[in-house]
């Protein structure tokens, strides 16, 4: 795999005319994006009544993801920060309306009007600070806050993301939860480094039966929350460059003791958050070599 596009240039520069064209003429990319979009639409779990909905495609690019929405009969509004990508979408005469906008500044939409949102391979871009004025945490907060507001109560957003590492995934998920969403991460093909895909499945409104998380594809009967607690163990090793100070904070929290951690986990569970099961490893002391 070549280096991540996210690390090469800001999105509106990386997706210039040439790259946008290249992106949209690769049959491999078209196929992957279509598959991801179909899966996202499935995870949205819209009522099975054949009624077309008003959907949002965040980071819609040249419209590969939006086309899946059109194919299912839905109306959609797409937004993207790259004019070049949107130009390709216009050329391809996609059916959605296209907006040139930066999701990191929040979505300018009326409250409660959107029936469902998808975002395919885009939200991880928010973790970068591409300009001096960019503060990833503020941008994530603005994005998720505005996404929560514009969705109808009970509506879902499914965001397929490529986090650079576990810290980044936690960062994104954390801001989604803080905005009020219920839900978590669904991982398809968790054991394959190539096919592994992550979807944030978020439901707007208070937790209920409908906010229970669907299971990922090919989980091999393994409970994904188990996997998650493994991840938590790894976190101390996977310190990302960008979030080093924040990581330290997390570590000091851990010294609060097992009972404190158990209480916190219980609190989160009551809120409907997805929390790994308690085990003998929960909040145990770590070896000094970390």
């Amino acid at each position: 795999m070549s280096s991540r596009p996210e690390l090469q240039a800001p999105p509106e520069i990386f997706y210039n005319d040439a790259e946008s064209r290249k992106y949209t003429s690769s049959s491999r990319i078209m196929e992957i994006q279509a598959k991801l979009s179909e899966r996202a639409l499935e995870l949205l779990a819209l009522p099975d009544d054949g009624v077309p909905r008003l959907m949002l495609d965040i980071g819609c690019g040249s419209g590969l993801s939006g086309e899946t929405l059109s194919d299912s009969g839905h109306q959609w509004i797409g937004l993207d920060i790259s004019q070049s990508m949107l130009n390709v979408a216009l050329e391809r005469e996609v059916e959605g309306d296209l907006l040139l906008a930066d999701m990191g500044q929040g979505l300018g939409l009326r409250p409660g009007v959107i029936d469902g949102a998808i975002s395919i391979s885009a939200v991880q871009w928010l973790c970068n600070a591409d300009k001096k004025s960019h503060e990833p945490r503020l941008r994530l907060k603005a994005f998720f806050g505005s996404l929560y507001r514009c969705l109808a109560r009970g509506a879902r957003a499914v965001l397929q993301v490529y986090p650079e590492n576990i810290a980044q995934r936690e960062l994104i998920l954390g801001f989604a939860m803080r905005a009020g969403f219920a839900g978590g991460v669904v991982v398809d093909y968790p054991h394959s480094s190539k096919s592994r895909k992550e979807y944030l499945v978020l439901t707007c409104g208070p937790p209920s039966v409908s906010t229970a998380l669907p299971s990922g594809k090919n989980e091999d009967g393994e409970d994904w929350s188990d996997e998650d607690s493994e991840d938590e163990e790894n976190q101390t090793v996977c310190i990302s460059e960008r979030h080093r100070p924040r990581k330290k904070l997390k570590l000091t929290k851990k010294t609060k003791g097992r009972q404190w951690v158990l209480n916190k986990k219980e609190q989160k569970r009551r809120k409907g958050d997805v929390v790994p099961a308690d085990s003998k490893y929960t909040a145990r002391k770590r070896k000094a070599r970390f």
């Binding site: 509004i77 309306d97 907006l99 500044q105 929040g106 300018g108 939409l109």
Partner: peptide, 8 residues
């Protein structure tokens, strides 16, 4: 779309 947009 115009009906859904609000300046932020």
């Amino acid at each position: 779309t115009h009906n859904m947009l609000s300046s932020n």
